[in-house]
Design a protein around this nucleic acid. Structure first.
Lengths: 239, 239
DNA sequence: AAAGTCGTTAACAATTTTATAATATTATAC
DNA sequence: GTATAATATTATAAAATTGTTAACGACTTT
């Protein structure tokens, strides 16, 4: 490496939860985006039902705010589709509507929405409802590691990338989960061995490499970096 | 056992969750009690804030519905007191109010309420909000699990697929019900053993497999996925 | 008593996962 | 650049895990 003075600028990663807003009125999208971003959330937008589904799959948001009246699939339809998919059974959903009739309120909740809010609504109130939902939901410890578009679900034993399931074998999964548990940190080879294989198990030198290779192959993303002579670390370089 | 003719009358046990309602208007108490009881919940009542606190401690309800405007401690105060106690940090709280101003809405939620509802509210809507709260909080506790065209009734011990009854033996049913109680989640073999067979029962290695096989055979749907080296999970892939 | 159900086990087949060995490639120090 | 060590890659063999079938005893029902 060249000599010189290096200044390291750490860019604050938006650590907040990801929220997807779907509404066909641009004004509402903008107001909500502004307020939720100010609150520390990372916001994605969609202007109709189909787009909402695409974004949901791609971004894997923690919460989706759905307008009921939208072109190309209503909020109700989107909610129903999402809830029937395994990856979205835990995703929070808030329905937003101008209709204030009782039947659709009940229907929305029965369809699997977590909250149903009538428009017009003040941003402050909506934000506090959003906060309340998150507060209640994430009281327990999380079994899902989320890193960008990658999700490692220890409960379902599945890795998801942009909404697509990737099936790893047990050892592969455990190895990836270990590395991803502390992104950026280098795990020494003997650390990996003792954590994934067990302290007393003796396996050959190349065993770790082969598993790393399989993970890289299956994920098809650059996310495991080799630190020569030391070990491996998880690092999202692409994707 | 004595000989004779036995007629078994199964009385529906109030298996539902316990709900405490606190409101100073007797009419509201009664309407809500009637509707929530009809829905299968066990209801307790309190007519002011102090009584609400006493009942909460005594009955340990799963959900408390608090009117904001009450004599002898407002709903806000009760909420604050409860949330500061260790035993009630996870108890669900719905605030009910005639005030429809934004500030108290936000304040109520920030105080730790899980929902904030303006009066007047139709019992139907309130019930569906209550159900929605429980659905997310106590998932897996339901007596009837509905997943697509499949219905698993734990109370009646019946599995129905597209309207047809499927008869499973006891162990088969319990195994399926366990897996289906948390769709997507992987149950480890030893978890299955301790939940279905009992922690101390020792059975052979292939016993679980054989039961899984029988379930798959009888249901004839792809709904149980094997996670090799780990366990099984319920997942509707087809049907 | 006969027929049927249920839960379990044993035996074996089929499959998948894991480890290793052999070889190629890459990074790093000199 | 070259030598060297470390890692990547590939194929293959070994090991582990699960699927499947049949059979047995304990019970229940007819």
């Amino acid at each position: 490496m060249e000599r010189g003075i290096y200044i390291c600028i750490t860019v604050m990663e938006p650590k907040g939860k990801k929220i997807l807003i779907a509404d066909d009125e641009p004004d509402i999208l903008e107001i909500l985006e502004y307020n939720l971003t100010a609150e520390g959330y990372t916001v994605f937008k969609a202007k109709d039902g189909d787009e909402a589904l695409i974004q949901a799959k791609q971004q894997q948001p923690d919460l989706i705010i759905l307008d009921v009246m939208m072109p190309r699939k209503t909020g109700m339809e989107v909610c129903q589709i999402l809830r029937s998919q395994p990856g979205f059974s835990n995703t929070l959903i808030i329905m937003l509507t101008a209709l204030s009739d009782e039947t659709s309120h009940v229907k929305g909740l029965e369809m699997g929405a977590d909250d149903y809010v009538n428009k017009p609504i003040s941003p402050k109130v909506l934000i506090s409802r959003v906060n309340a939902l998150f507060r209640r939901t994430f009281r327990g410890d999380e079994t899902v590691i989320k890193l960008g578009d990658l999700q490692i679900d220890k409960e379902q034993f599945i890795v998801r990338y942009k909404g697509d399931d990737i099936i790893l074998a047990k050892k592969e999964f455990e190895l990836l989960a270990l590395l991803a548990s502390k992104p950026g940190r280098v795990f020494l080879r003997h650390e990996i061995l003792s954590q994934v294989w067990g302290a007393d198990v003796i396996v050959g030198d190349r065993t770790i490499d082969v598993h790393i290779r399989k993970i890289r192959q299956k994920l098809n993303i650059d996310c495991i970096t080799t630190v020569k002579g030391v070990g491996y670390k998880f690092e999202m370089t692409a994707g």
